[in-house]
Design a protein around this nucleic acid. Structure first.
Length: 299
DNA sequence: ACTTGCAGCGACGCGGAATA
DNA sequence: TATTCCGCGTCGCTGCAAGT
């Protein structure tokens, strides 16, 4: 038997006819007219050289070959349907592990509320936060190794979809009792007080550096640290000044003795976004996680 | 020289209407 | 239910033009 000339509707017809024992009814079930069903049945009969179904006093009944064929076709259709059906994602029962790209700052901003929500809505779900690799992070999103990237990545991600969560701006942070800023920000002190900064990661920090040099804003940098997370603690125990995002600064100001001030010059803003690959745009699990981020963090 | 895109043409198969 | 006839869409082939 050659499968090459086989039409999908012929298989659906065999299945429908086996169930109903009536050609007109089978035709209606597969959405064709009775003559069309008859044509299809006749073609199939020629192809397999067997009547498949014969007219009896009890309706259209299968031959022994037709009976076996109908059984195989039914199994095949069930397999096909399961292949075409979109798998549903059930957060309440899922044991899935989600991999996400986040910076250290991102972890601080997003994880507390995210974990709280996960424990309520998806207690079986595991989260694995990954550092963003220097090379080709988009390939990991494309392959599905990582589900989402979340943060202020300006250069990250070719070929990915993205959604803005919120806009961030820079503020200046000093210790709460800094003598040079008793009455808030002043331009003279801003230029005189030494600054601390975290090494650029290749993302938004570069944006600030470029902007300051373009505006010819002079600052004295006395401390470079490799990771941002140490910076607020150092600022709280020194006379140094640092730039950081308003959200991060406000979060740290709740747990450290810090003063948050508007910078004396206009600075660029930047967006925190979600990134995901087109391949997983319609994936139910990926969509659920994206919607969760949007629900929790979108402005 | 080869590839690519497009149009024209004929063959073929599917499905609907009418009918046996 | 089966058959005949017919319209219509699809597919494969061919030739042509333009681009590489």
């Amino acid at each position: 038997m050659q499968l090459a000339g086989l039409q999908f509707n012929q298989l659906r017809l065999v299945d429908a006819l086996a169930r109903s024992g009536n050609l007109s009814e089978a035709a209606a079930q597969i959405g064709v007219t009775q003559p069309a069903a008859s044509h299809a049945l006749a073609r199939l009969r020629r192809q397999v050289e067997d009547p498949i179904f014969v007219r009896t006093s009890d309706g259209m009944r299968p031959t022994p070959y037709g009976s076996r064929l109908a059984s195989s076709v039914r199994e095949a259709l069930v397999t096909l349907r399961s292949g075409f059906d979109r798998a549903l994602f059930e957060p309440a029962t899922s044991k899935r592990t989600f991999n996400v790209f986040m910076t250290g700052v991102g972890q601080m901003l997003f994880l507390p509320r995210l974990l709280e929500r996960l424990s309520l809505d998806a207690p079986g779900v595991t989260l694995r936060v990954r550092h963003v690799p220097a090379k080709a992070p988009h390939l990991m999103l494309e392959s599905g190794e990582v589900d989402l990237a979340i943060g202020a990545f300006t250069t990250l991600i070719a070929g990915c979809r993205q959604k803005r969560l919120f806009r961030e701006r820079y503020v200046c942070v000093v210790r709460h009792d800094h003598p040079a800023f008793k009455d808030g920000m002043n331009v003279e002190a801003f230029h005189r007080v030494p600054h601390a900064l975290a090494e650029p990661t290749g993302y938004v920090e570069d944006l600030l550096d470029r902007w300051l040099s373009r505006q010819k804003v002079r600052r004295i940098v006395k401390l470079h640290v490799p990771y941002f997370l140490a910076l607020p603690h150092l600022i709280a125990r020194s006379d140094l000044l640092a730039f950081m995002s308003n959200r991060v600064a406000e979060a740290y100001a709740e747990i450290l003795p810090l003063k948050v001030m508007q910078p004396p010059t206009k600075l660029p803003t930047y967006d925190s976004k979600l990134f995901w690959h087109e391949r997983f745009h319609r994936d139910p699990a990926n969509r659920w996680l994206r919607e969760l981020f949007v629900d929790l963090f979108s402005e």
